[in-house]
Simulated scan of single mutants.
Amino acid sequence: MTHWTILLAVETAEAAAKEGGLFDFDATLPLMAIQFLLLIVVLNAVFYKPLGKAIDERAQYIRSNILQAKERLEKSDKLAKQYEQELGETRRKAQATIAAAQADAQKIAASKMAEAQQEAQVQREQAAQEIESQKQAAMQTLEQEVDALSRQILEKLLGPELVK
C-alpha cells in the first residue's frame, strides 16, 4: 500500500510540473492577490482597528489613573506635612501651657508657703507674748506670795506691831 501512495504522489507531481510548476502566473495569481488584500482590509476593519482602539483607550485610562494617583499622592503628602506642622505647633502650645501652669502652681505654692510661714510666725509671737504675760502674772503672784510670806515671817520673828 505504501507503494501505491508513493506512485500516486509521483503522478500528481508530474501533472503539476506539466501545468507550469509550483507558481502559475495566469489569472489565479492576481485573483489570489486581490483576495489577500480584501482579507487584510476586512481584518483591519473588523479586528485590528477595534483592538487598537481598545488598547489605546486602555493605555489612556492607565495614564489618567497614574496621573490622578500622582496628584492624590502629592495632595496626601502636602496634607501629611500640614498635619505634622499643626501637630508640632499644638505640641509646642501644649508644652508652653504646661510650663505656664507649672510656673503658676509654683507661684501659688510659694505664696501659700509664705502665708503659712507668716501665720506660724504670728502664732509664735502670740505664744511668746502669752508666755511672757503668764510669766509676768506668775512673777507678780509669786512676788505677792513672797511678800505675804516674808511679812508672815517678819511678824513671827519681830511681832505684828513692828511690821508695817
Rank of each mutant, 00 (worst) to 15 (best):
M1Y: 13
E71N: 02
L73K: 05
A103S: 06
A94W: 08
M32F: 09
E115R: 03
A127S: 01
L8C: 03
E119P: 00
W4H: 13
L31P: 00
S76P: 02
A148L: 09
V41I: 15
L158V: 07
E161R: 08
A101N: 08
A138C: 01
E89A: 14
L38C: 11
K49N: 04
L29D: 05
A127E: 13
A45Q: 12
D56A: 15
M32P: 02
K156T: 10
Q68W: 03
Q152G: 11
K53M: 10
A69V: 05
K53I: 02
R63V: 11
L38S: 12
I40L: 11
M32D: 09
E19S: 05
K53S: 07
A148N: 14
A17W: 01
S133E: 15
D104G: 03
A59Q: 15
L38Q: 11
L142G: 07
I6S: 06
S150N: 08
D56V: 02
S133I: 14
A114E: 14
G159H: 00
Q118H: 08
E132Q: 13
T5S: 11
E119I: 06
A110I: 05
E11W: 06
E74M: 05
D26T: 05
Q95A: 14
E74L: 06
E125S: 04
L149H: 04
A148M: 07
I40S: 05
I34E: 11
T5M: 12
D26E: 07
I34G: 08
Q140M: 10
Q123V: 05
F25I: 00
G21V: 03
E130H: 06
T5H: 13
E145F: 02
Q60R: 07
A96N: 09
D104E: 07
R92L: 12
Q123D: 05
E115M: 05
L8F: 03
D56T: 04
R58Y: 14
A148V: 07
E71A: 07
E71P: 00
K164S: 15
D147R: 14
D147G: 08
K107P: 02
A9T: 02
R63I: 05
L154I: 02
A114K: 08
M32G: 04
I153K: 00
A116W: 01
L142H: 05
D147F: 08
V41C: 08
S64T: 12
M32R: 12
Q152P: 01
T5F: 11
S133A: 11
Q82D: 09
I131K: 15
I131D: 13
L37H: 06
Q134P: 00
T2E: 15
Q136N: 08
L154D: 01
D104H: 09
L29P: 03
L51N: 03
T28Y: 11
E155Y: 00
D56I: 08
T12F: 06
R58S: 13
G21F: 00
